[in-house]
Nucleic acid binder design. Structure first.
Lengths: 350, 350
DNA sequence: TTGTAGGCGTTATCAG
DNA sequence: CTGATAACGCCTACAA
């Protein structure tokens, strides 16, 4: 009916003055609290008549169940903990959004915490999350040992990314870094480059050494010798990419291309090349890894290996939901994809 | 003592098999549950003897209070809701980290939600947060009306950023966008530029129009006419910066500098200039706004106005804590600071 | 199918 | 200063 808005249905307006309880709904609907609970949770079959009454009462009262009480009494909080390494970081940002998007429609809320690449901090996050009684934990790129992770999975479903690991209540989603790096190097080789420098990632991380392996394998697969002089250490952040280029230029060993283990370092490398008056791609071709959102806007746009961060988040969340439902997740990350943009070009014929 | 690790102190190891309750602690310490609660919360003065006993019992049992029960019984959850527009976004990321860093040592946990610049979604976030019984809500760059925000503040402390708004339980933190834009334009003028193009932000956002105003005021303050032809609309994202440059170049009206209302658009503009064969800063000087983390690694490094995102987060969280404590926040954001990097240089003397 | 009773783990209010 | 005794709001046997 097109009645003018009555002042009583306060719920949609958003001023929760009086905490409406399930009990009040029960009274209004003329049923017992348990019945209301059953209907709201679909825990049991109820007569259509009562269901109607309850639904209506819920609506007119604007009742919203109290998650705290629900969690305390029912043992489930409908919240899942997400430990990320750096909440600021274009890469993680996309993953978190994926998680959010997947969880939200299912009535679950993510609880984000940052561990800052610190195992101790990560352990603390896990404890806090346990204490908060989350229904499961997703760890993005854990720094903790496999056994520590497995231990956590004893009491809660756990999903991790960036590692190969399976267990009772544990699922892992891993990206094929080796293949990605192989692909990137192959690309450079196919453009006629043979003196391809490599800026490594922080080799503390397994994915960094995988990328290193991929680089080397592609080289050797093409009959090009792996030259340690062309391999300079980086730490996965911009400055290290810049410094790597400085080192590369200083040591006089010629190179016509650079493959950086991630886009952040490629960005730093681009700046370094610019400062040395080396043009990309005319003088040096540059390829990154990750496909950060802004790499396509770099000048010139960066050729790179696409990492499906958003999808990673979605799949991780989806797998967690399956684990919670007692199902066995089967999600797999897509294979690495090479994006050829303007930063890589054919090697000059000397 | 250097005793070898005993197998009993299971707490630090992280395998919460048996949920230890406050009651168990009470029993072990030989006191009543209420006393344990008092000691743990510092709610009342207790004899030193009992305190010792309780502290010890807590430790040996590895007791961790259940936040859900605490929230239900005490009415406070020690969690504060944070609604952000885009959880992925270098700008928000830094702010979220600031919030995290400020809250954590005080025993509070942030609860992040993204509203995606959508007022409806934002309203839903507020409701969800209310339902979760957070102790307060921080809204970063709200899209909701002042009155809606004020309404929320009726039932909970609220802190907003990017808007001027005060109320009983409401505090706002605003950045001086006008001054920042004024400063940026002034910088270009002082370099001898007079044909300064401006790429606007999404003028739906108050900060965008403030920046526009600052640009215009600086121009007019220097006796340079405001030329609508040089003002092209942008939407605060990279593509729009790129398109703006295309439009600018196409319309043939000469310009020697571009001031973009944010770094993302400046990045897009840089790419556009590159594609048109225009060099930065030799042919066109470029200045952005925000100082995103990677702007310093752009090629060339981008001159811009620094926005203290991390600090914004810290101050917002600190103000929230004060509001909760019944104090009146007084935090102020620092004045805009110009960072001169390599993307801006003296205008060529024609 | 539906109602009653008890409990989830704390905090708060009251007596002592 | 300290210990009972209620709530807090909901779920889940258990009984009807």
């Amino acid at each position: 009916m097109t009645t003018h808005s009555a002042p009583d249905n306060a719920a949609p307006a958003g001023n929760p003055k009086t905490p409406v309880t399930l009990e009040m709904v029960a009274k209004l609907a003329g049923v017992s609290p348990s019945t209301v609970s059953r209907i709201l949770n679909g825990t049991a079959v109820v007569s259509e008549a009562k269901r109607q009454a309850v639904v209506e009462a819920t609506k007119t009262l604007g009742f919203v169940p109290n998650p705290l009480a629900r969690g305390l009494a029912g043992g489930r909080t409908f919240s899942i903990g997400v430990v990320t390494q750096a909440i600021d970081s274009p890469f993680y940002g996309a993953a978190l959004r994926g998680i959010e998007d997947e969880l939200d429609p299912m009535g679950y809320s993510p609880l984000f915490m940052s561990a800052h690449w610190n195992p101790t901090a990560e352990a603390r996050c896990l404890e806090l999350l346990h204490a908060r009684r989350v229904d499961g934990i997703v760890v993005l790129m854990p720094r903790l040992s496999d056994s520590a992770l497995l231990a956590s999975a004893q009491s809660l479903p756990v999903v991790v990314t960036g590692r190969e690991l399976r267990g009772e209540r544990l699922y892992s989603l891993n990206f094929d870094n080796f293949a990605g790096a192989f692909r990137a190097t192959e690309h450079l080789l196919s453009l006629g480059h043979t003196d391809i420098a490599f800026i490594t990632g922080d080799e503390e991380h397994p994915d960094a050494s995988e990328r290193h392996r991929g680089y080397r394998a592609a080289l050797e697969g093409a009959g090009v010798a792996y030259n340690p002089l062309l391999v300079v250490p980086g730490m996965y952040h911009e400055v290290s990419g810049l410094e790597a280029v400085n080192r590369l230029v200083a040591q006089q060993r010629p190179f016509t291309a650079i493959f950086a283990a991630n886009d952040q370092m490629a960005t730093g490398a681009a700046l370094g090349l610019y400062q040395h008056g080396l043009r990309v791609p005319q003088d040096v071709s540059l390829v990154g890894f990750d496909d950060l959102p802004n790499s396509v806007y770099a000048t010139p746009p960066l050729s790179t290996i696409h990492q499906p961060a958003y999808e990673l988040g979605r799949l991780a969340a989806a797998s967690m939901l399956q684990l919670i439902a007692g199902e066995q997740p089967t999600a797999q990350l897509p294979t690495p994809e090479l994006l050829v943009r303007a930063s890589s070009a054919a090697a000059r014929t000397l």
